[in-house]
Design a protein around this nucleic acid. Structure first.
Lengths: 340, 340
DNA sequence: TTTTTCGTTGACAGCGTTGTCAAGGCTGCG
DNA sequence: CGCAGCCTTGACAACGCTGTCAACGAAAAA
């Protein structure tokens, strides 16, 4: 309880607290012998610096806030693990702040959080990463932040993303190459930036192959199972039914699967289905889903790293940094050649 | 950036910083008029106390650590939302610490985390809540903690749980009352405390109704889809196939569904399936799953509350507090009378 | 009226670090 | 040999807040 402080370590090592501080912060100009002595003392005493004291005295708080709205739990879980993993390397900690980013109080909540915490940075997941009011609050608070998979105004701040457009393009080409001509598409939640890019990628691929996409083949979903189900019902009941449906995320693809199942349409025999995200459910569905895998864990790691390294100073005029990570097409059993 | 401190508020309100501190901490003996003045000043200046400073000066850090190992993301997500929700009421923040609780370094990681953070408490989710080494590390660090759904030695520390035994008992009775006699059971991960209690509840209910449970009808799963699938295959392929299978969680129940589907067994016509947890997938599966709903959100809220209120002082000899929350049987379409 | 008590307020000393600045000791070069 | 200049180290003042203790005035008691 009477916790061990830097003074105890200093005393044991026979040096001043400042020298201990130097060693622990890997500052230069400490004699190797001294460094060893300090390290040994810290080790035997099991010394742990207090983040509060460090934060108060220094310029870093060792705290990073993660603001997320409720997209899929799996997505958030990967984000969290990735961010924490990188944080641990440098003694940082992740403070969790789930919220309703559309609520009027959201910007104020965020501002309050980063200022009470004196957070060194914030990570925003979609759809938070596209809320202008939130970004503004963070700008005003002077807190650096990294947007994950932003849509609008990517140049506005630091961000990490995959090429959603290209991924959707590639998946569409996969379907076309299998022989599909009538391909339906289910757009994701309009508030999520990636939704638009995925749609564009799809449309572009179809256009590039001279394929027509009537309005009835593009449904508006919300990234939920039920919205995927509803859109699929509409498409499958209409005349000129598609032979393949590409849903903007796995949850909706699962909804498509359910709708097909209900109509006794075999997948992939009668209908090919493709998703996006490669959630765990994609592997366990019947049949397993062809989908796009995003390196979510790595994206979060990258975001944390950018913050820890202080790669972006909001005050400076420099262009905010960004990273583009690779995606991967995962072809499983839900897509096949159309029945001729 | 040049953040507003308690001094600014004090100056603006024309009082000393101590008085501002009193008002903000809701301490007694402050004249109402003074209180108003301070509150107004804080409001217009948008003052936010620094957790670091509070932590350093006072006895509370306003930080609670959440240690979780990777059970289902949905479960963890609910836990997080519940805990954060309660934390916000009192200006607390949740620090996320996912880890591999079976790793040899886990206790040390936890000890290090709570001491650098000077955390006011820790919340442990299963299976972390049953790791003796972890509990010991926390005891040594003198940090209060609340175990969620612990199995072994519940009297050892504060905890929150539902009556898993009774829930499994009730679900089993539900199946028996539908007319099932041959009921299979899939045990959960042996490291999770609730697994044993659920099995006991099942066995007790069967015994109370004079029903026999041959060893072949009790499979050992691991809370995963694939383990549920494997266990179901074994039971369904054996002679004397059960007419109902009760899986200890929804993921495994989904595995059972897949196995039944593969054998062209109708659910619930040929086989009734019951799960546990009421995950989102339970509602969207085909057919929707009969399951047990745990008030996960509320359990986490309760855990955070116990910590915030300081309901348990590890130093004191008093018996650690605990809370038992109600569960709910959710009957959907995966269970029905057996085909006569 | 005088004394006691209590409600209200402020001064001030930390809390455990880091940042600043200065003091020595040593090295190297003139 | 002397002095500039670097390497190494330490003293000490913050950082923003809470806990302690004392002071003041007013209300209550004598």
């Amino acid at each position: 309880m009477a916790s061990v402080t830097i003074h105890h370590v200093a005393e044991r090592a026979g040096v001043s607290i400042k020298t201990v501080s130097r060693v622990l912060n890997k500052e230069p100009n400490v004699k190797p012998a001294t460094r060893e002595r300090v390290l040994a003392a810290a080790e035997t005493l099991r010394y742990r610096p207090s983040v509060s004291a460090r934060s108060l005295a220094g310029s870093r708080s060792y705290l990073i806030a993660l603001f997320s709205d409720n997209p899929s739990s799996n997505y958030i879980g990967d984000i969290q693990r990735g961010a924490v993993s990188r944080c641990r390397e440098d003694g940082y900690h992740l403070v969790l702040e789930p919220l309703d980013s559309a609520a009027p109080g959201a910007p104020e909540l965020i501002r309050g959080t980063v200022t009470t915490l004196r957070a060194d940075g914030a990570i925003l997941t979609p759809p938070v990463s596209d809320r202008a009011a939130v970004l503004q609050a963070l700008d005003e608070a002077g807190t650096p932040y990294v947007r994950i998979a932003p849509d609008r105004a990517p140049e506005r701040a630091a961000h990490v993303r995959i090429d959603d457009r290209q991924a959707a393009y590639d998946m569409t080409v996969h379907l076309i190459e299998l022989g599909h001509r009538a391909v339906g598409f289910i757009v994701g939640h309009p508030d999520h930036g990636a939704s638009h890019q995925r749609r564009e990628g799809f449309l572009q691929a179809m256009a590039d192959h001279g394929l027509d996409v009537p309005a009835s083949r593009v449904g508006q979903g919300f990234f939920s199972f039920s919205s995927g189900f509803a859109c699929a019902e509409a498409m499958l009941d209409g005349e000129d039914r598609p032979t393949a449906i590409f849903a903007s995320n796995d949850d909706m693809a699962l909804g498509v699967l359910a709708a097909a199942h209900r109509r006794r349409l075999g997948v992939p025999a009668d209908l090919s289905v493709a998703g996006f995200d490669d959630t765990p459910a994609a592997m366990t569905s019947v049949p397993p889903l062809t989908t796009v895998r995003q390196p979510i864990f790595q994206m979060a790691e990258a975001a944390a790293e950018m913050l820890i390294n202080g790669e972006w100073d909001p005050a400076a005029e420099a262009e905010p940094p960004s990273r583009l990570l690779p995606f991967e097409l995962v072809v499983r059993e839900s897509t096949a050649r159309p029945r001729s």
